[in-house]
Design a protein around this nucleic acid. Structure first.
Lengths: 153, 153
DNA sequence: CGTAATTCGTCAGGCGACTTGACAATACCG
DNA sequence: CGGTATTGTCAAGTCGCCTGACGAATTACG
C-alpha cells in the first residue's frame, strides 16, 4: 500500500533504498517472531528484550555485562530487566560475592522463551529457504555479515 | 565490542539472529549515508526524512499523500516536513485549488540532497559489489525483496 | 442553495525506548 | 584505614512516533 517506485533522483533510481529494505526485512521478521511467541503463550516480549535473551550466560549475568554486550546503557538495560522480571522471564539476585552487583538469571519460563525464540527464528529461515532457495538464504546471511564487518572496518 | 556467539538456545544456535543482522546492516548503511551527506554540506538529515525524499512527486505532494505513501501518520510527517523546511530542503505552499491543503515541494537544495542521497547509496552498493562480489550484492537485494514480499503476501 | 458530512493539516498530550547526570552502597587498593 | 573505583538505581530529558481533538475549507445532498 505504500510501495512506490520511480520518480526519485534525477536518473532512474528504481530500487528501494537499502536502509528501507533492511528495515522492512527486520520488521516482517520481528512481526512473525512476536506473533508466534505470543501464540505459544510468551507474551509481552519486545525487540529490546533480545538484549537479555541473546547475551545472558547460562549461570546468569550482571547487569553491567549485559549492558556492555548489547551496547545499551546500564540504565536502559535495567529497565528492560525490570520488565522481563515483571513478566516472569528473569529474576534478580544479589551476588553473594559482591553485594553491589546483582545477577540476572533466566527463570525456567525465561529459558523456554529463549528456546522458543531461537526455534521460531530457525523456522522462519527454513521456510524462506524452502520457498526462495536454500543457497540464496544462506548467501544473504553471509553477505549481510560481511557487509557489516566491512563497514565497521 | 558486543559481538557474542554461542551459548544461546539449547541446541547450538551460533548465528546472529535475523532481526539483529538486518538492524546492523541498516545502521552501518545509514551511518555512511549520513556522514557523506554531511560532508557534502547536506546537514541535519535523518532517517525519517527519507519519507519525504523517497515519496515526493516532482511537482510537489500533499502532506496526506506523503503520509500514506510512507506509512507514517500525517502528524508525524508534518513534523518531518517542518524540520526539512527549517533546513531549507522543502517549502510549504497552500494549494490554490483547495485551501485546506498545502503542497510540499522540494527546494533546489532539497533536490540536490535527494540526488546526492541516491548517488551515495549507489556508491555504497557499488563499493560492496567490488569487495564482496557483484552477483552476491544484487542477489542479496533480490532475496531481501522477495522475503519481504513473501511475509507480507 | 443551506446545512451536514467529509477532508486537510495542526495542536496537544502520551508513550516507548533510549540518553546523561547524580548518587548511595559496596568493594578494592596503597 | 581513607581514597578511589564500580554496581545498579533514581531522576529528568530527548527523540520519534502514536491517537485524539479540532478549526478551516471543501464536497455531498435533501
Amino acid at each position: 500500500m505504500a510501495t512506490r517506485a520511480g520518480r526519485q533522483g534525477g536518473q532512474g533510481v528504481n530500487e528501494i533504498p537499502l536502509p528501507a529494505l533492511f528495515t522492512q526485512a527486520k520488521d516482517v521478521t520481528l512481526a512473525v517472531l512476536h506473533r508466534r511467541l505470543d501464540e505459544e503463550g510468551f507474551e509481552g516480549i519486545r525487540y529490546s528484550h533480545g538484549a537479555v535473551f541473546r547475551f545472558i550466560d547460562a549461570e546468569g549475568s550482571r547487569l553491567t555485562v549485559l549492558a556492555e554486550r548489547s551496547g545499551l546503557s546500564k540504565q536502559a538495560l535495567g529497565e528492560v530487566v525490570t520488565e522481563l522480571e515483571r513478566h516472569g522471564y528473569v529474576e534478580r539476585t544479589t551476588d553473594p560475592d559482591d553485594h553491589r552487583a546483582k545477577i540476572i538469571r533466566l527463570t525456567e519460563r525465561g529459558t523456554e522463551a529463549q528456546v522458543a525464540a531461537a526455534r521460531i527464528l530457525g523456522d522462519i529461515e527454513r521456510r524462506w529457504a524452502q520457498h526462495l532457495g536454500r543457497d540464496r538464504i544462506t548467501g544473504m546471511r553471509r553477505v549481510l555479515e560481511e557487509v557489516v564487518r566491512f563497514e565497521r572496518g
